[in-house]
Design a protein around this nucleic acid. Structure first.
Lengths: 205, 205
DNA sequence: CGAATTATTGCAGATCATGCAAGTTTGCAT
DNA sequence: ATGCAAACTTGCATGATCTGCAATAATTCG
């Protein structure tokens, strides 16, 4: 039932390719409609018609309407998780996170325009802004575990969890200023954020 | 239409008192049902029956089902806003925030048990956790404005917004550990969090 | 007491979410 | 290629939330 992300870049069979294409189409037309008319004002039957599938199929791919605005988030988090887990011993958690953000910004699967549109759509709707928090919570766990490894403490300890939460929040705020995200500039601001986090962590010790 | 919080402690007329009592009853029985059966498993008609009103009345008081888990949040934020706005010139934003948290913890209108139950209910449901984020976003604005005043910069600047976001997030994480919230102990942890924030802020300069 | 305001309620319609079963397409082994 | 098994798509039905509207009941105020 789960999407079972294949590590290999190329797809498996014809069926899986078709499935991904359908999924991508639905998400794409949904994003376009959200951007033009707003999230609340767009109905699932509308999206279904635009994607040339039945409303029931839309719900089959995206159990919640909100998921249509976060179509790749699961795969992205899988990548983040792997990146944090497999990082070399001498690379710190924040450095690995910074590297992941860099590769995320340059991921060819999603165009810069699409990223901006998605960002705009999410910020325009309170529901979506709140829904996004679910993913933030998941990311917190991943980052907290990584920071805990750096500090040599259990992942449940307060410090790594606080640092992880603050880190993500800071990124969130940074994202607010980036309607027009340009990788190089974005990373510069990321570094500024990491300064804040490092300062906070050292103040705790 | 708005609730129009009266500054005076005592209510105005009989009508308003009755209204507040009804509202409080609905929120109370809803919380109890949420705690016993879970948020998703509790229906609005169930709550209505337990509160001895019609389902339509429940929706009239609480436009979203989720609002039933945050019945006083508007008044609390009004108080926070006033506290930050009217603080003496020599009191820093974080100090005022700390003071407000203290008074919030000791607010007689809500029993400690009720606070714990609410906390437990919210943390048990992903929907509610995400919904809570709406209020966090509002709080961010208030705190950011206050910190901006401290720093002598416009409220739109990056630093106060980052500091405000990090502050609230840190409190959120702290709250996770406090099933049994005892004011004195809670404030001690708050101080630890403020250390983190202060460290972050000074690292930025 | 009478009029105006407000609260409560029922009803209907729109939307989303979900289980189930039937029909269709694809994968794979023979 | 052929046929069977698995997976995908779809329609249907049901339950739940949310909202507008109008009617009724209660409260306030002159």
């Amino acid at each position: 039932m789960q999407d079972m992300q294949i590590s290999e870049g190329e797809p498996a069979g014809l069926r899986e390719r078709k499935r991904q294409r359908t999924r991508e189409t639905i998400a794409r037309v949904a994003l376009e409609l959200f951007d033009r008319q707003g999230f609340q004002e767009t109905t699932i039957p509308q999206i279904a018609e635009a994607a040339d599938v039945s409303p029931r199929t839309v719900s089959a791919y995206f159990p919640h309407k909100e998921d249509l605005a976060f179509p790749d988030v699961d795969a992205e988090f899988d990548a983040l998780e792997a990146r944090m887990r497999d990082r070399p011993a001498e690379e710190t958690a924040v450095a690995a996170l910074r590297a992941w953000i860099g590769s995320w910004l340059e991921d060819g699967d999603v165009s810069a325009i699409q990223r901006q549109t998605r960002h705009r759509v999410i910020r325009a709707d309170d529901d979506l802004r709140a829904y996004e928090h679910r993913f933030t919570l998941r990311a917190r766990q991943v980052i907290a575990a990584a920071i805990a490894r750096d500090l040599g403490v259990p992942p449940g300890d307060l410090e790594p969890r606080m640092a992880a939460a603050a880190t993500l929040t800071v990124f969130e705020v940074l994202g607010e200023d980036h309607e027009t995200a340009e990788p190089a500039e974005a990373l510069a601001v990321v570094d500024r954020a990491l300064l804040f986090i490092d300062g906070g962590i050292s103040a705790l010790r």
